[in-house]
Design a protein around this nucleic acid. Structure first.
Lengths: 148, 148
DNA sequence: GGCATAAGGTGGGTTTACGTGGTTTTTTGT
DNA sequence: ACAAAAAACCACGTAAACCCACCTTATGCC
């Protein structure tokens, strides 16, 4: 179970250090095997799944009918892009250059623990998201009972 | 099972190097025999099937009634265009010039592992696809249950 | 409060395998 | 038989994997 926000920096080779707070979870959930893909819903964001979680996601996505464009897009962004990575001796993973480029993640980034996965955002994209507040029109039925 | 995205470059002769990460799968699934055709759904994209997979696809497509124009189109783009290729000693395949031209794949390209096949995209077409995020309106019934 | 120690994060060097360009030889088609 | 194209072969540059060392920050102890 991932949770928490950490500012991280990519070095010139495109490596990010997995924050110590997540290391244990990564080791336990996935035997240190992570899968990097695009977040198909947002710009400037990559997803990092523990391998086990990934396999479920992949199978679900592959099972969608290939007749619909939106399904093929999803398959392309998730399955097509999926790269296996493993932390080096210092707990860093190398993010594939093509994904860094396409997602626009350069040096400053933010790593978010999001339950079953980690999200890596470019600093800009993350800041923009955080600054967007939720307006009243966006509130859904399901949100009315929230306890805060 | 193919998966993962790799930036590749075609040389002047139209050769692409199959990324090392896919070599094993290609050798195992097809004895190094691949079939190149058009992706009938997308511009700027070629499909590369292991020969075994291809035979199934071909038979399915050929079995469609020839009375419908859309069926004949599919047969034309898939079966009609299919070219057998085999990697050279350095793991490269030569893409037929006509297919490179028709798909608009020149120098920079991206190779995607898409389960039972590989997809070769022109860099531009790929980037355009990745930058399109999936919007709320596109979400289908089938997608509501996805675990991410 | 300041210093010592440890842990996490960062930078960089080295080796090796992979990708890429090019050359030569063989085949194919005219 | 000749030209053009594809296949096979060779060689180099680069980037990834691995490893080592330093710097910064947090923590504990005197």
């Amino acid at each position: 179970m991932f949770q928490g926000e950490t500012a991280v920096t990519l070095d010139d080779k495109g490596r990010v250090s997995i924050p110590a707070s997540h290391r244990e979870a990564v080791a336990k959930l996935s035997g240190n095997r992570l899968v990097v893909t695009y977040n198909p819903f947002e710009h400037g964001c990559l997803w990092l799944f523990p391998e086990k979680e990934w396999e479920q996601v992949r199978d679900e996505v592959n099972a969608l009918s290939k007749a619909k464009t939106v399904h093929r897009n999803l398959q392309m962004k998730l399955v097509g892009a999926a790269a296996h990575v493993e932390p080096d001796g210092n707990g860093r993973v190398l993010l594939p250059a093509s994904q860094r480029g396409a997602a626009g993640i350069e040096k400053k980034a933010v790593l978010l623990g999001m339950g079953n996965k980690l999200e890596l955002w470019s600093e800009q994209a993350h800041l923009a998201k955080i600054r967007e507040t939720i307006s009243e029109e966006q509130i859904t039925e399901d949100m009315l009972d929230l306890k805060f």
